[in-house]
Amino acid sequence: MKGASRYLPSIPVLLAYAALFVFGLLNPGRWQLVAQLAFYCALGQAFNLFMGMTGYVDFGYVAFLGIGTYGMAISISELADKGLGLGVIVIGLILSVVFAVLLSLAVGAVALRLRGAYFAIATIGVNEGFRYLIEGARIWNGSEGIIFSRQLREMVGREAAMSLSTFWADVMVFGVAVIATVLTIVYMRGKIGYALAALRMDEDAAKVMGINVTRFKIIAFITSAALAGLLGATAWALKLTYVFPADVFGIHYTVEAIIIVLLGGAGTLLGPIVGGLIYGVSKYYLAVYLPGFQLLVFAPVIIVVIVLFPEGTVGMIKRKLIGTALEKYIL
């Protein structure tokens, strides 16, 4: 596949996001659900960029969302009265990316030098470790967190603050999902994609082929972390207008990201949106019938997927479509 045609698989994904967005606009009563689905898809897309492409699982991933939430919270609570207007939001987005990248560099410097099991061990405590650093050293108000709804209201007015939290934050989440999708396909179709695919299949052989595996893993890790930071800044900080360390470093968001990616198909472009929609819709209905226990249903599902359908939904569809005209649209 050559030239622009190699980017064709992004079309169905972007169309799906557009359809979801339009559906939400046309059904204001369902906007909350649509926003939730967009969050899960974006989470999966961002998480997949590292886990799916490298085959390494970062159990502490939620820490990047958490620190991104702080980036936005600090920006608004500190700069609200400086007369910068919506520039504060832009600064918040930038700060959330900067924070997430710095944390990913710190974690990656240790963890990415380690293989398989040791990588998992190094990352599983990152979210807890960081939460306890914030609480223990009373950084950013420690366990009391930051509540910045007042500053946000004073900055942009009551109406605008309201629409920022209930609508524009969600639109930004769609934006994060689209950015994640575009980055994923650019990576997958570029040299980095081949490098990551090679190291995922056989890391030692990849090194012998001249692939600087650490460098490519770090690039994927940082990219995935930066997207998580943006997601925290939009889906959590702007939407909730407060941040508490005990909430934003909870490991169950990592669990959800894993479920979404595995359901959809790890390392595929379309997988996270498929997984995100399946998970989000199921969770929505499970919340009606079995409130609070969606993970009790989904944790066994992960095991079933790993044991019986390791390629996930999209992986299976892709195999069915080999040799058909649709093949070049599915990745």
Partner: peptide
């Protein structure tokens, strides 16, 4: 030690992409 789930062409292309002339 082939990259088993990549195609033959991709396997060899990986050598070209990252080797001495990469």
């Amino acid at each position: 030690r082939p990259f088993a789930s990549a195609t033959v062409q991709e396997n060899i292309a990986i050598g070209a992409m990252f080797g001495a002339a990469g």
